[in-house]
């Protein structure tokens, strides 16, 4: 194939991906408006929160003016949006530090936890999904179904509490709070993260495993699978060479959903293991009415979600020759 031909072959998907990216950006702007409006609806504001119950209305008004809270919402919105776009989401009203600084302290923690959990749970989810799908209706499938359903149904705080009870209190194997020492050895590092990763992984493995099972089963019913069997293709080759390439679309989308949960939804695990991540930061921002921080966190979560979905879409487009050729 000539260079020109292969270049034009990529124009179709490139256009599709660009279109999706544009849509994601538009969505992000709409979401920003929603976030700004909703956070404005929360009762009370930072001025009131800072001065406490005993403050006079005059004092509150003065502080509001100082903090710029008395200007019209539209003005504040566009100023804020401009700041976000330039990478400066403003000053934290409570901590009196730039929001960017506060977030950048926490972001590596969240990324580490999410990354480790992904590394731990995705392979297991694939194993469960595939094993379950190929033994559909048989004993293995039923056992795995019951297990994953139970895992989905168990609330995270319960799993976390039981894990602490077993591994920290009874067996004394693992620390009950996640404090990573300075310059940890690999062993210290893994020990510190073992429990939060396990607890977060339970839900992800179960959800993702079930999604993978469903995606594979949907493919197994298609005529090309029977054809492959009649060609004498082995079970392993059938799953990895024939079925999975076709199931990539739904699977990567399920992964994007699970991973975005890991990024912003780890609040219970962060609280129980006293782990300084972004989710607890955002909850603190809500309780202290620290709007700039709250809004920045919300935007960050949404942007991550949209990015993950965009990546999933792109992978799905590239995996499908029909879409790839635009």
């Amino acid at each position: 194939m000539s260079g020109a031909a292969s270049a034009s072959a990529w124009r179709g998907p490139a256009k599709l991906v660009l279109k999706r990216t544009g849509l994601a950006l538009v969505t992000l702007v709409l979401v920003s408006a929603v976030i700004f409006t909703i956070s404005g609806l929360l009762p009370g504001d930072a001025a009131q929160e800072l001065l406490g119950q005993g403050a006079t209305p005059e004092q509150i008004a003065a502080l509001r003016q100082e903090m710029g809270l008395d200007r019209p919402a539209v003005v504040r919105y566009f100023e804020w949006l401009r700041g976000i776009a330039l990478g400066d989401p403003g000053q934290s009203l409570v901590a009196n530090k730039p929001v960017a600084e506060i977030i950048s302290e926490r972001l590596p923690n969240t990324l580490t936890l999410a990354g480790l959990t992904t590394l731990f749970s995705v392979p297991i989810a694939f194993l469960i999904g595939i094993a379950s799908a190929v033994s559909r209706g048989k004993g293995t499938d039923r056992a795995l179904n019951i297990a994953t359903l139970a895992m989905v149904a168990l609330p995270e705080f319960l799993v976390a509490t039981i894990a602490v009870l077993v591994f920290s209190v009874k067996l004394l194997w693992l620390p009950s709070i996640t404090i990573v020492p300075q310059d940890p050895t690999l062993w210290e590092f893994l020990r510190a993260y073992a429990m939060p990763v396990m607890v977060l992984g339970v839900g992800v493995i179960a959800q993702l495993g079930r999604m993978i099972r469903a995606a594979i089963i949907a493919e197994l019913d298609r005529p090309y699978v029977e054809m492959a069997r009649l060609k004498g293709v082995s079970q392993r080759r059938l799953i990895f060479r024939h079925v999975l390439p076709n199931a990539v679309g739904p699977i990567v989308n399920a992964m994007a959903l699970s991973l975005s949960y890991l990024f912003g939804g780890a609040i219970i695990v962060e609280t129980i293991f006293s782990y300084p991540g972004l989710a607890s930061l955002m909850v603190n921002a809500v309780t202290s009415r620290d709007m700039p921080l709250l809004q920045a966190c919300a935007m960050l979560f949404c942007a991550t979600y949209l990015l993950l979905v965009l990546i999933a879409d792109t992978v799905a487009i590239l995996a499908n020759p029909r879409l790839r050729q635009g």
Binding site: P223, Y224, M227, L230, P245, N246
Partner: peptide, 19 residues
């Protein structure tokens, strides 16, 4: 199967792997 005995399916459009 697929070696000494082979099969031509009804709908080739569905029986080929699309990807």
């Amino acid at each position: 199967r697929g070696h000494r005995i082979t099969y031509v399916a009804q709908s080739a459009a569905a029986a080929f792997n699309p990807s």
